[in-house]
Design a binder for these strands. Structure first.
Length: 384
DNA sequence: AGCCTTTGACCAGCG
DNA sequence: TCGCTGGTCAAAGGC
């Protein structure tokens, strides 16, 4: 377990073992292949650095999801309640709020582990709109007074902005949002780049209510219906492990589907520098409240292992196919040691969670003209 | 009318 | 104690 000895104020997280992804994928007829979707979230104190992780291997694309530009839901919610979902694990001992390190010049990802009571367990993984997707976000800077323009990323809840501040050390303004639900004290902080891209989202607290189902936002989302077609399992496998099954995933998502139809959507596939093996793009859409959510998570992955003796934590670095500049870093397992001293000092010397691109991952993307932007995994609060 | 964003002021924690 | 910083409040205005 990672201990934040260098930062006493930050709690540690205890997460129960997560279900086997392999077993889950197997249950939906998918051969996992060389990829892991999302694992435990432990933070950037252990963030990839050449000194703390050694590269195990690199693999070529294992596309998981595709996200069409234009989806706005900004929320990719692995529903709370679905026991089969690898993400629907129970976290009854902790409230772990994490933000993924994301990403993105043109897309953002965010993961949140939200610890709820026994009746509501959830893990949320949110992916936010790309620049193509987030016209609304862009409008913020074009139409400062537009209510629509500064909508926080839609994660299924309703939020009211109550403040904005330029935070020192960050080039981006930080917006503060509260859940509008009565008696719900959940807040989130969102940092947006000047072009409207969300650069960081931090959730705080836990919702004490269900996601609203019939509010305006959701209604809007539902308006943008995506095509829905179910991918045959066999094809899923052959295509490189496409996750998404209306029967399995769908139970948690309520409505999760796979689509092969892009409908003319610009996927931002970058010219020649994407290692996307599939001539056709297939997508997973998540709805209803997320409506048109589709994302493509991986096109390239490198595996790293923590170099600390006896520590089996692995890190996966994926480049999002939807944007070669996007990187998704996934940690698997828990560190059983303290943060290396050198890591601590470097951690303290700069603003946490604003990880600069690190050598190894740069190397992974050395063929790309643009550096990836890391998503940081960050725990915000824990309630035991 | 209600809900939202904006934004300057205020407050609390910390060194 | 003071200054800095992050977080919050609340009035004003827009939709």
């Amino acid at each position: 377990m990672p201990t934040d000895s260098h930062s006493p104020a930050r709690p540690t997280i205890t997460l129960p073992p997560r279900p086997s992804l392999e077993s889950f994928l197997s249950s939906v007829g998918i051969s996992p292949g060389p990829m892991t979707l999302v694992s435990s979230f432990f933070a950037d104190d252990y963030s990839p650095s050449p000194s703390s992780f050694s590269q195990l291997l690199s693999v070529t694309p294992s596309p998981l999801f595709t996200v069409p530009p234009g989806f706005s839901p900004s929320a990719f919610l692995f529903s709370p309640t679905h026991p089969q979902s690898p993400f629907g694990m129970s976290h009854q001992q902790a409230l772990a709020q994490v933000t993924t390190e994301a990403v993105i010049a043109q897309s953002q990802g965010q993961m949140q582990i939200d610890e709820d009571d026994a009746s509501e367990k959830n893990v949320e993984v949110s992916m936010f709109e790309t620049s193509h997707m987030s016209n609304n976000a862009d409008k913020k800077y074009q139409q400062p007074s537009s209510v629509v323009a500064d909508k926080p990323a839609d994660d299924g809840y309703n939020w009211r902005k109550y403040g904005q501040k330029q935070v020192k050390g960050s080039e981006f303004p930080r917006s503060y949002y509260k859940c509008t639900h009565l008696s719900c004290n959940v807040k989130k902080k969102v940092e947006r780049a000047i072009d409207g891209h969300i650069t960081e989202i931090i959730y705080k607290g836990q919702h004490n209510h269900e996601k609203p189902h019939s509010n305006k936002r959701n209604k809007d989302n539902n308006d943008s219906n995506e095509s829905v077609s179910i991918q045959p399992k066999s094809e899923l496998s052959s295509q490189g492990c496409w996750v998404g099954n209306s029967d399995s995933f769908g139970k948690g998502f309520s409505d999760c589907s796979i689509s092969e139809d892009l409908g003319g959507v610009d996927m931002r596939e970058e010219e020649g520098d994407d290692v996307e093996p599939n001539p056709k793009r297939r997508q997973v859409s998540v709805s209803p409240f997320l409506s048109s959510f589709k994302m493509q998570v991986s096109s390239y992955m490198s595996y790293y292992k923590c170099t600390s003796a006896g520590c089996n934590v692995r890190k996966h670095i994926e480049r999002a196919s939807m944007d070669p500049k996007a990187v998704i870093t996934t940690y698997e397992g828990k560190h059983n040691h303290d943060v290396p001293a050198s890591r601590k000092s470097s951690h303290n010397s700069s603003k946490p969670h604003k990880a600069v691109p690190e050598k190894q991952s740069d190397m992974d993307f050395e063929n790309s003209n643009q550096r990836p932007i890391h998503l940081s995994l960050k725990e915000e609060q824990i309630i035991v």
